[in-house]
Design a protein around this nucleic acid. Structure first.
Length: 466
RNA sequence: GGCGACGUGGCCAAGUGGCAAGGCAAGAGUCUGCAAAACUCUCAUCAUGGGUUCAAAUCCCAUCGUCGCCUCCA
């Protein structure tokens, strides 16, 4: 079965074909770095990390570019307020963002270009657009001339006439058409500025992505991704600018993730209903955020609230249960039964691929994995030896790895408390041997209050940090 | 006003023409001194109203409702 991807441009799932055999050129719009990142950013980053990982698992070599917008009105405003240098401010948030991505186990991009480091490319593109009549300068600004583009609006399905009628845009008399957008903005005194043929200024928001694409990936790319709030105007404008220059289709597939919603509202900086990535990670493993994303469809809104979070925590613990070791004294399974477990694992792999090939249906792929969890736990409960579990567990780890899940037990690293906890557990064993149940239970309850969970079994007691 | 998405069990959520995945919660049971974990079993006719079809959650129409974009936004 071949991979199929839903393409915003055509509003259909299409078979995936790359421009160059075996190689994928992929660009995802990164953040404007004027503040710390919230879990809506995490969702987007996780979605495209999963796409990228699955493409790599499917045998593609992926060149993955994610930019940082590091010069923009908001950054400048923010810097003014705090008296900081805008470049240092942006750098600080870029460092924060990268740290967040790493904590979420998101693979680093092949390249992280930044608007301020691409100025020559940006200016060159604008100049060409002006020269060929696709853009015009006014008072130090340069605007893209939407009327020069008969296809303008093809991504978002908008028509210039209807948008013109909408009239919720502030009309700037200097613009030929209300929807003309800035490629270059003249600088006000004291703002960061670069020299240009039209005077000192800085690039508009959309042109930097076009320039970075062209520079790092070429005239045409396979996948362009981002949040669905970027479809219009950002991606629409990227297409307009780039295709005006190349006269070729820019990205073959446009992929857009849905918004994370809190109380049925989009989480965003302007609404102020944010949960920062750092805040989330202070309370939960990164895997929980990833599972939250995997549980739904990347194109739909993602429901976020305390209840869903608690459910995902539980689902996460269930995933971990598949990796528990067999009882060392287990009698072992009949060979036929052990073979059946391996067959289940192989079946899971094919179900997993089938699901992911269908526009990255992570929810269905998780369902297949949870069925494997049950099969493994069943086999263990029925007395499988560790050697008999291993083949199935390896498939489980392979596939959860493709999704970027780490599933590390919390207590992998040893702490100074370990020896003391071990001592208490050993003492409790003696209490139990003497049937001093009340005392044994008190040890368990009190340790639980300290975050240590004891589990008794026939062969002994294991403990984990909660 | 324009464009778009969506409405599936208590909650989250797949499925887009042929007996409704999966997770959480809940109930019953196995195991266990108890607990936890694990395992077993139980738990939906798919917003509403029409229509097409041998057959619809799945296609068409209408209604109601929710959300996103149209201004910066992942």
């Amino acid at each position: 079965m071949t991979l199929r991807i839903y393409n915003t441009l055509t509003r259909e799932k299409e078979d995936f074909h790359t421009l160059e055999p075996g190689k994928v050129r992929m660009y995802v719009c990164g953040p404007t770095v004027y503040d710390r990142a919230h879990i809506g950013h995490a969702m987007s980053a996780l979605v495209f990390d999963i796409v990228r990982r699955y493409l790599e698992y499917s045998g593609y070599e992926v060149r993955f570019v994610m930019n940082f917008t590091d010069v923009d009105d908001k950054i400048i405003d923010r810097a003014k307020q705090s008296g900081a240098d805008p470049f240092q401010l942006a750098q600080g948030y870029i460092d924060d963002y990268k740290r967040n991505l790493e904590a979420l186990n998101i693979k680093p991009a092949t390249v992280n270009p930044r608007a301020t480091q691409e100025m020559a490319h940006i200016l060159e593109m604008i100049q060409t657009l002006v020269d060929q009549g696709s853009a015009y300068p006014v008072d130090g600004d340069v605007y893209y001339r939407v009327d020069s583009d008969p296809e303008y609006g093809k991504l978002s399905g908008r028509r210039l006439e209807s948008m013109n009628a909408g009239a919720r845009i502030q009309v700037d008399d200097r613009k030929e058409h209300p929807m003309d957008f800035a490629l270059w903005k003249a600088a006000k005194p004291g703002e960061p500025a670069w020299d240009s043929p039209w005077g000192k200024g800085r690039p508009g928001w959309h042109i930097e992505c076009s320039a970075m694409n062209m520079h790092h990936l070429g005239e045409q790319i396979d996948i362009h991704g981002g949040g669905n709030d970027l479809i219009f105007p950002h991606h629409e404008n990227e297409i307009a600018q780039t295709e005006a220059l190349t006269h070729k289709p820019f990205a073959t597939y446009w992929m857009h993730n849905g918004m994370l919603t809190l109380k049925s509202e989009k989480m965003s900086k302007s609404l102020g209903n944010m949960v920062l990535i750092d805040e989330f990670l202070a309370e939960h493993p990164g895997d929980v955020m990833r599972l939250l994303v995997l549980n739904g469809s990347y194109r739909s809104p993602l429901t976020y609230n305390d209840e869903v979070l608690a459910q995902t925590e539980q689902a996460y613990k269930r995933m971990l249960s598949a990796k528990k070791a067999a009882d060392p004294n287990a009698p072992g399974l009949e060979p036929a039964r052990a073979a059946a477990l391996e067959a289940d694992a192989q079946k899971t792999r094919s179900q997993f691929k089938e699901a992911m090939d269908d526009d990255f249906n992570s929810s269905a792929s998780l369902a297949a994995l949870f069925e494997l969890v049950r099969a493994i736990n069943q086999a263990r409960a029925d007395g499988a030896s560790q050697a008999q579990l291993v083949p199935a567990v390896q498939v489980f780890e392979e596939l959860t790895g493709v999704l970027g899940l780490q599933l590390n037990e919390e207590n992998t690293g040893t702490t100074k408390a370990d020896a003391f906890i071990d001592l208490l557990v050993a003492l409790r064993m003696e209490l139990r041997a003497q049937k001093l149940w009340a005392l044994a239970d008190k040890v368990r309850v009190d340790l639980k209050a300290l975050g240590v969970v004891l589990e008794d079994s026939k062969t002994g007691t294991t403990w984990t940090w909660e």
